[in-house]
Design a protein around this nucleic acid. Structure first.
Lengths: 251, 251
DNA sequence: GCCAGATTAAATGTCAGACAATAAAATGTA
DNA sequence: TACATTTTATTGTCTGACATTTAATCTGGC
């Protein structure tokens, strides 16, 4: 592990990269202890604060964990699916909000991915996952539910569907897509009528998944996507109309 | 933005979280300058090194960038698709390598996602993307190509297919899945015969995409997935056999 | 007045040394 | 042996300083 002290790049960034590369290459294996901060500072010929900045960078990516005390130190972390989820969700949300991604594009991506899981889910779903879907459908039907709570329940429902595929890699990849959509979905105000419509489609999907009827699941997801996009468009249109009226009044 | 000095959690981690939350909530917008390190230290009532550790954590996630000089400081970064993409690839690779994800599970996930893109790609692919696919097919047919180069070309081919969907969110989500598979794919040694087979399937896929024939693309991807898994199994079997023979000799 | 160069100021990057907090291991004692 | 105490290694944090970078400002000459 070497760094270039003459580079214009931060020393801490270089050190972080060197260690990260060593982990990716397998030179440092899971649960292995890194040298102490003092030893690393000595090795790279930098001060301890600089080493610490590098270690914090790695900790931010869940690549290492640190322990205090006599046998403490920095250890290569086993990257868990849950940690990776959390990071991916944060990243995806920011990506969508900062890059003016349209509702349509995000929605298309989300449903395309979800439909990829659907056939596997229809085949393998567990009773647990079916129960979760039913429970969320019930929750969504209750009056007095806020729009936020409705959306959150929607996410839970769809995550159960995705998890039904019984493929952790798929679940991980989709976590970002499904959850990142939530802030966009929250812009929609659901009328009692539209909630009814969505609950009906959810029920159809749950029924088809239970019956292991993949083609119907796919068809209903397509319907749901179309309906979701329609709702979003009506929100956008209504908003534009209000803006135009306001413009008219002031003029 | 507040922190709890009595918490057992690192101060730098708390500060990083406070700032991250502010960014996610939209309280800090893109390109906005954060207070200087000294001001942040003052605000949170900690020392400058502690603030710096927090900022490095955020920098590791591409949430901020720093500039030196008179008008320098830390700025909220516009998270670009490329940055998010790079992080996702690293995370996915580590996730797969550290969690003993089987080839089958990873392969299933990858092709399920890729098939989700295929219909959109068949509809929207640009001449550019078709040209890339053709070029990679040509490269894959050349003798003397190392297994690593063959795999790299494979990744480029499939990325062109995914990008053909013309949906940045989809491309981003799939980047991890496709590239994270590469280390696993690299375990396979390709015979001349198996390369021929793969190139033939790639050609069929490119033809079908060009002809905007989505069902055929889907069918050929299913074939390719089955063939890839067969190849991987034969590698595993051969390896097990060699190990058994070695065991027999020493016994 | 205007431009080029020198100066200044503000910010991050880095360092050195110190002390606090923690947790395990070593040690002492009943 | 069992338990309390001390030691020790390590990370967490602070203070203060200097180096480096960069833009803005000042200054002198034309």
């Amino acid at each position: 592990m070497k760094i270039d002290p003459d580079s214009t790049v931060d020393l801490s960034a270089q050190i972080a990269k060197a260690i990260r590369d060593a982990i990716i290459a397998g030179d440092l294996i899971v649960d292995q202890r890194l040298p102490s901060e003092a030893e690393l500072a000595d090795h790279f010929d930098v001060s301890r604060p600089t080493v610490r900045e590098a270690l914090k960078r790695l900790a931010a990516q869940s690549l290492i964990r640190t322990q205090r005390g006599a046998t403490g130190g920095a250890f290569v972390n086993r990257l868990r699916f849950e940690d990776a989820y959390a990071q991916q969700v944060t990243t995806s949300i920011l990506l969508l909000s900062m890059n003016a991604v349209s509702f349509d594009v995000a929605c298309e991506a989300r449903y395309a991915l979800e439909r990829a899981c659907a056939p596997l889910s229809a085949e393998r779903r567990t009773p647990d996952q079916l129960a979760t879907m039913r429970a969320e459908i019930h929750r969504q039907g209750q009056p007095g539910l806020t729009d936020e709570a409705f959306c959150a329940s929607d996410v839970t429902f769809h995550r159960a569907l995705v998890d039904g595929a019984g493929n952790k890699v798929l679940s991980y990849q989709l976590a970002g897509a499904v959850e990142a959509m939530q802030p966009l979905m929250n812009m929609i105000t659901f009328t009692a009528r539209s909630r009814e419509e969505i609950v009906a489609l959810h029920t159809d999907i749950a029924d088809a998944v239970e019956a292991q009827d993949a083609p119907t699941v796919d068809a209903k997801l397509i319907e749901l996507e179309a309906y979701t996009r329609k709702l979003a468009h009506s929100v956008v249109t209504a908003r534009a109309k209000r803006a135009a009226e306001k413009e008219h009044k002031t003029a």
